[in-house]
Simulated scan of single mutants.
Amino acid sequence: MLSTLLLPLVSALPGHLYMRYPNSWWITPGDTLPIAETKPIPILQTTLLCTSPYLLLAIDPDVQYGTTSTIVLHWLQSLRADCQTGLLYEDPGSEQTAAYIPPQPPKRSHHRYIFLLFQQPDDYELPECYKHILPATKEARVGFDPKEFVEVLGLGSPLAGNWFYVENGGEPVASEVAPTTTSLKVACTSASARKEL
């Protein structure tokens, strides 16, 4: 699975994605944060060039939806980097975004949250078959397939990333996630996406 395979490789990506929440420290990959700190939108900073737009993908790969192991999309955002500070800000020209949903692991559990930064294609437009992800609801975001999404949009490999655990009270209990993830949505293929555009 793309999300699990990338975890040990985050530090080997060409750039860095530094992140923190307003009341947290700068996050090192693998850190654990309490759920209360992750409610606001995080502050993001990168070492990547400021001349290109980027696409941020944030997912939770540890979700059990009934008896199905699945992935929830938490954020899809077009970003640009400030040339002086490297701070990332919302690309003012982008409308094809899925608003941030804060981490919501169940009580007495902790989930991984993975943030990946991609080069945004010049002709980026969210295909019609992905418009269902735009509402900030669990129903709209559950069953997201990041590997399929990356392939359909031709994003290539991520340029930078970060990940962390969020715990929700009590002693953390690792989620038992199946090695394969089932998507609960209709597949969106590159052929169908090209047909829609």
Rank of each mutant, 00 (worst) to 15 (best):
Y113M: 01
W25F: 14
N23G: 08
G66Y: 09
A36K: 15
S52P: 06
K39G: 11
D31E: 11
F115G: 00
S52Y: 13
T68C: 06
D82T: 05
R108E: 14
P42M: 01
R20N: 00
R20L: 02
D91V: 03
S24E: 04
P22R: 10
S78I: 03
R112N: 06
R80A: 03
G93C: 08
F118A: 02
A81I: 03
N23A: 13
T32F: 09
D122K: 12
P34R: 11
H111F: 02
P61S: 10
K107H: 12
L79F: 10
W75T: 03
P121H: 05
V72T: 12
F118P: 01
T32I: 11
G93V: 09
L33H: 01
I41Q: 14
S69R: 06
Q104Y: 13
D60E: 13
L55Q: 04
K39P: 04
D91H: 04
L117P: 08
A98M: 13
D91R: 04
L76H: 04
D82M: 06
T68V: 15
T46C: 01
Q77Y: 08
D82V: 04
Y113W: 03
R108L: 13
L116V: 06
P22Y: 07
P40A: 05
L33E: 01
R108N: 14
T70Q: 06
L73W: 03
T51E: 11
T51L: 08
S94L: 08
H111M: 01
T38A: 13
E37R: 11
T28D: 11
Q45G: 06
T67C: 08
P29G: 03
L44Q: 03
S69W: 07
P102A: 15
Q64L: 15
Q96L: 11
S78C: 15
D91M: 02
P42S: 00
P29D: 03
C83A: 02
L79V: 10
V72R: 14
V72D: 15
L57Q: 11
P40I: 06
P102H: 11
T28Q: 14
A98V: 12
